[in-house]
Amino acid sequence: MTADADTRPGTTLISALTARARATAHPHAPTGPCACADAPLADRPDATVVRHAGTVAKAHAPDADPTALALRVRVAARLPDVLLAPLAPAPVPLRDRLVTFWPYGAPVDPDDPDAAPWESAATLLARLHRAPVPPGLPPMRGPAKAARAVDRLRSALRATPHAPARAAAGPVLAAWAALPGWAGAAAPMPGPAALCHGDLHLGQLVRHPAPDGPWKLIDVDDLGAGVPAWDLARPAAWYACGLLPPDEWTRFLTAYRRAGGPAVPPDGDPWPALDVPARALTVQTAALAVTKALAAARPLDEVEQAVADACARMPALPPRRAPGIPD
């Protein structure tokens, strides 16, 4: 197999992972020469992802819970109309990481806003939210990620004196303080739990088979049981902050409702259900932006400022509550 590349001292995780992807792509000649191109797709502290031909290998975060990750991958295998199905049914260890294997899918083009698949994203979410929650599945990790972004901002504030970015941090922390505990994973999520993606954005959709197969959701690391409105809250927050045009928000919301999604009522004002998650994701986005600006000792750019400004308007307006859901 690929034991050499896996364990040789000095070999990077990315090259060991590429060897695994190559072996999975060519199971009959795992170490032989091949003409396929290798491409790193992501190399972040929480994930390293490489592609070899039609195979993608992902090394999950060093602190990923093995049992929870296995359950999440199994959900993807069971819902192939909604989530990209894994190539292997269970994660495998590689050094100190767990690795999963997936078929390559074609992503959304970041340079072509008009081609963004808003209806498909909404319909896939509605189907996901209507699927049964498997027993033992842990909570969706959206609120934990929002809390982590705010923690990072607090650490960055302690470390840097850059005045303009420090000034932007105050309203972000104030908006966070006004949210109920569940929005930061400090309390259980309210209401009936649905199967949720947990980290929806436009990088989480691919067409499989590439380049023009049906759209599927990818990345199950944050998938779990929880408040389904969380998965609608990023587009909702982008719309509220003026980053997503009303037409595109309407297309997304209408498609979700048409597909019978349970996160919002079938008609009328969706904001009582969306308000807390959309605030939390606005705060999360602003916290990450201000943290980056602090690290680079630079002011916020125009888009980041729009998100921080929305945080500044929040504390004066108490969060709304979905009917029948306690604080």
Binding site: A240, C241, P246, D269, D309, A310, M314, R320
Partner: peptide
């Protein structure tokens, strides 16, 4: 479409 009061 409807929007929250804290919006832009």
């Amino acid at each position: 479409p409807a929007a929250p009061a804290w919006g832009a």
